[in-house]
Simulated assay, not measured.
Amino acid sequence: MEIVVVGRHTDVTDRFRSHVQSKLDKITQLAPTAQRVDVEVTHEANPKLADVSERVELTVRAKGPVIRAEAAADDRNAALDIALDKLVERLRRTRDRRKDHRRNYVLAPVDVRSYDAVQAAEPEPEPQTPRLEKDGDAVEKQLGDSPVMIRQKLHHAEPMTVDDAVYQMEMVGHDFFLFIDKESARPSAVYKRKGWTYGVITLDSKVDGLEPVSDLT
């Protein structure tokens, strides 16, 4: 299993890389098919955020779903421990789910909304902007002359059900998850609402070359 450690706005020492290697060895026990673990370390220079100045994001990439966890603390070793605890718990849930094909949670009624596809013309990327070509590629770009930074990231999408999308969202620890609805062949996004309810936004535009399951005979 390959472990890739990168730093954003910070340097990563060889000592910390070795520490990460020893800590992540246990992942192979819970995810034997894991091919790579991406470890992203970010430093926040704002003194007002000193308590969460070190952020560690862990992403396990395997043949199955991508599992992700992140945490922030005043020390990157502490942030690593917290993120690893979250990751281990999600890996265990994934392993248990494979053992039992029955759903281990009840999906609350979803609020499905359909929107007309908005064909917005996007400006051509500037020559100096790196292209996003493979799963996991990310790039940051400043919005004009403003201090706003926009981070773009490319993700590979497999058609799945709403039920599976909710599960994937929980596994990566996000409040939303983009996916292609297997039943309608439309780009969709599932998101968390209040309590144990979820919502789904579906674009009124089908993916080329993909037939809806409901339309198949």
Score class of each variant (00 low, 15 high):
residue 149 M to K: 14
residue 164 D to Y: 04
residue 168 Q to S: 12
residue 25 D to H: 09
residue 69 A to K: 07
residue 181 D to G: 11
residue 46 N to L: 04
residue 196 W to G: 11
residue 22 S to F: 04
residue 152 Q to I: 11
residue 133 E to G: 01
residue 151 R to T: 15
residue 147 P to R: 14
residue 193 R to D: 04
residue 31 A to L: 05
residue 116 D to V: 10
residue 170 E to S: 12
residue 60 V to H: 03
residue 3 I to N: 03
residue 165 A to E: 03
residue 59 T to D: 03
residue 122 E to L: 15
residue 24 L to N: 01
residue 15 R to W: 00
residue 17 R to H: 02
residue 26 K to S: 12
residue 213 V to D: 10
residue 103 R to W: 12
residue 3 I to R: 04
residue 123 P to G: 08
residue 82 I to T: 07
residue 14 D to K: 10
residue 126 E to A: 14
residue 204 D to F: 05
residue 22 S to D: 15
residue 16 F to E: 04
residue 217 T to M: 06
residue 212 P to Q: 09
residue 180 I to D: 05
residue 17 R to P: 00
residue 184 S to D: 14
residue 136 G to K: 07
residue 175 D to M: 06
residue 20 V to W: 04
residue 89 E to A: 14
residue 3 I to T: 11
residue 140 E to N: 11
residue 17 R to G: 00
residue 101 H to E: 10
residue 211 E to Q: 15
residue 86 K to I: 02
residue 185 A to Q: 02
residue 98 R to W: 07
residue 172 V to F: 01
residue 162 V to G: 00
residue 100 D to P: 00
residue 19 H to I: 06
residue 198 Y to V: 01
residue 93 R to W: 07
residue 76 R to I: 01
residue 24 L to T: 01
residue 140 E to L: 08
residue 155 H to C: 10
residue 163 D to V: 09
residue 101 H to V: 04
residue 90 R to D: 01
residue 14 D to Y: 00
residue 135 D to I: 10
residue 22 S to N: 11
residue 51 D to W: 02
residue 34 A to S: 13
residue 36 R to M: 12
residue 206 K to F: 02
residue 77 N to L: 02
residue 8 R to S: 09
residue 29 Q to S: 11
residue 173 G to C: 03
residue 68 R to K: 15
residue 145 D to K: 08
residue 217 T to F: 09
residue 13 T to F: 06
residue 129 T to C: 04
residue 85 D to C: 02
residue 27 I to R: 01
residue 63 K to Y: 13
residue 171 M to G: 02
residue 3 I to F: 05
residue 144 G to F: 09
residue 86 K to Y: 09
residue 193 R to K: 15
residue 112 V to Y: 04
residue 143 L to V: 14
residue 165 A to D: 03
residue 53 S to N: 13
residue 147 P to G: 06
residue 117 A to I: 06
residue 8 R to N: 10
residue 171 M to I: 07
residue 80 L to S: 05
residue 91 L to D: 01
residue 131 R to H: 09
residue 88 V to C: 05
residue 170 E to H: 09
residue 120 A to K: 07
residue 204 D to L: 09
residue 177 F to G: 02
residue 43 H to E: 10
residue 135 D to C: 10
residue 116 D to R: 14
residue 69 A to T: 10
residue 114 S to R: 13
residue 100 D to I: 06
